[in-house]
Nucleic acid binder design. Structure first.
Lengths: 240, 240
DNA sequence: CGGATAGAGTGGTCTTAACCAGTTGGCCCG
DNA sequence: CGGGCCAACTGGTTAAGACCACTCTATCCG
């Protein structure tokens, strides 16, 4: 028996179930799913709640439950309770490494990573793929000194941050991220399998560890039709 | 005819109950509250879930449930997660109101705002302008009941959230925001003064007040060349 | 033929009732 | 007196079922 909460297993089942469905397609009724999965309706509904909250499913009272607009949602911020939800397709993510090598930082990167211009920087370009469909191009830059011994395999799947923590003792703590609208250029379009000048998100992220050291500068291009960024904002007494 | 949901009444009771408590104080156990309020535990827990999500309460397995950390001040160090929204430049913000009127919510908006489909909703479309240059188109939707008496002038300049707080007693607390890449359609392009199919950000924001009630659903289009979203992420030890 | 209506199917809410899993503190034994 | 164990809390999860509200459609009646 696989470990874990029943409701998580149900949620994972639904994720698989929905994976090869088109946006807006209906899923079986709650009562039918209960019978098929052998769980109670509250449990089933709890699983669906998760997926509705993260945008995978959409409910319509009296009509049914349908697959959402087919986008992967990335949670930007955790709620105070830490109960926000992982990207729905986690586990199906794969990466195709397009480039992997070390070179001197150069002036711009040196500035971004707060290194000497001559310091070696590991540059990794990877195509992120979900269910055989290209989703994003990530260009990562890390100080070579922090990740000596990192090999491409480490970045093919799973959580890169976990590798950083467990293998290199780099404990990621915070990140500053900027998001801009853009359109794909020719090479990006080919890699992502979309037309040129297609809507896309450009995300730049600078990540720091617990000691405040910059451990990563990443510039990514996400397909606009398949990606969406979610964040939760909290206001204090005097914000405008 | 305020929504007679039991869960909402329980939530409101808890809000009153917690109002004059110090941060970190314990509330009665779930089972005691059930007896006192005459509701079942799932219902009680659903109400507490809302308050935990909005930061009013904090649960601790095996110990109890406590009032949340922040009251009115503090914030930066206290909140585990902070996000902010950064307009690209200073300058003089103005709004040109393009549309201002009330109509029944309809099915979709009713769902977004968690109202009855027949409930009146104030719809406001405004063009946001900085230094005479169009920046964004905002389409706001608010429950008419919350903002009866609001006039277009209130939204021409200054902080709309301040108006909500000072004139209508609506205290904005949190928002969930999703950001997608898109391109302008013909009318948007004209309003924003850019070519058609120009890169743009579509931002949907659902805003809640301190009571967890939805006060606003807004869909906005921002010029991609003039706008950028910045957010700061904080990871804690347990995140995978 | 067209519109009203009843029924079936959907998600939405709530109840009762277990049992599981951490936390705490007091009791008993060494 | 000190330490370990256990009972009694706490919140966390799941179950099974009742009833409500909404949507659609097929049927019936004008």
């Amino acid at each position: 028996m696989r470990a874990g909460l029943k409701r998580d297993r149900v949620r994972d089942f639904l994720l698989d179930f929905v994976a090869d469905k088109k946006p807006g397609e209906a899923i079986p009724s709650e009562r039918d799913l209960c019978k098929e999965l052998g769980v109670s309706r509250p449990t089933l509904r709890a699983a669906i709640d998760d997926l509705v909250r993260s945008g995978v499913l959409v409910r319509e009272h009296g009509r049914g439950t349908f697959t959402g607009p087919q986008r992967v949602t990335q949670a930007l911020a955790a709620t105070p309770t830490g109960s926000f939800y992982a990207p729905p397709a986690e586990g199906h993510w794969l990466s195709r490494i397009l480039e992997f090598g070390s070179a001197p930082a150069g002036p711009q990167l040196a500035n971004r990573l707060q290194l000497a211009p001559a310091a070696p920087v590991l540059r990794v370009v990877r195509l992120r793929v979900v269910d055989d469909e290209p989703m994003a191009i990530e260009r990562l830059h890390l100080p070579q000194a922090l990740v000596d011994g990192l090999v491409p395999d480490d970045m093919e799947s799973g959580s890169f941050y976990r590798v950083l923590r467990e293998r290199f003792g780099v404990d990621v703590r915070s990140a500053v991220q900027t998001i801009e609208a853009t359109v794909t250029d020719d090479t990006e379009a080919v890699l992502l399998g979309v037309p040129e000048h297609f809507p896309a998100l450009m995300v730049e992220r600078t990540t720091r560890d617990v000691n405040g050291r910059i451990v990563e500068f990443t510039r990514s291009i996400y397909r606009g039709d398949r990606y969406r960024v979610t964040s939760e904002l909290h206001f204090d007494a005097a914000s405008g």
